[in-house]
Nucleic acid binder design. Sequence first.
DNA 1: GGTTCGATCCTCT
DNA 2: GAGGATCGAACCT
Length: 206
Amino acid sequence: MTNTTPLAQSFFSRDTHAVARDLLGKLLIRKVDQHVISGRITEVECYVGVDDAACHAAHGKTERNQIMFGPAGHAYIYLIYGMYNCLNIVTEAVDFPAAILIRSLEPTNDLAFMMQRRGQSKINNLTTGPGKLCQAMAIDRSLNENDLTKATNLWIANGSQRIRQSEIMRTARIGVDYAGSSAKLPWRYLINNNQFVSAALPSYSK
DNA sequence: GGTTCGATCCTCT
DNA sequence: GAGGATCGAACCT
């Protein structure tokens, strides 16, 4: 049985790394028009606090990143490179800026919808990357600040599969070389030997 | 008001 | 492995 009940806010208001590990294997569900699109989370990255040079909040609160300072369990969605959206989930306490970037999914429902959105029929090229999964699931900035603990149009659920700690691998984050020593932190978590992870290789891995 | 550049992806070589 | 697409946030002057 697949559990599609939204995870509670208490799940997200914990230590970001603990939430990141627990998010692997969970279900991301998107409801749009008559479609219910979903995928299992296979890869995430942590962005934590003002001391993390790769985190958007590293230089304090701004118009764009203020969502990260807000309550946990909300979506922080921003535009990258002028063309792609990235989906993050706010974690930890109010006024502590932290979020988890969803980097990759394993498609589980309404693959036809995703294929059409992506103009791709290869199943492992639908949602394996932060920009790709947003395109496949019709996630854009209109969903910014969306409460992900409510089953409205975007939320996270338990799903049906539990991931063991021994199945989790961690590496450095992708595309953050500009962040100096922070770029080397092993804050990317993914499911070991899963084919639904982004192709990008870390500049440094364990 | 102007400039810079990015938590990416795709299409070429 | 390199380069282009494309735009708004953030940081200048």
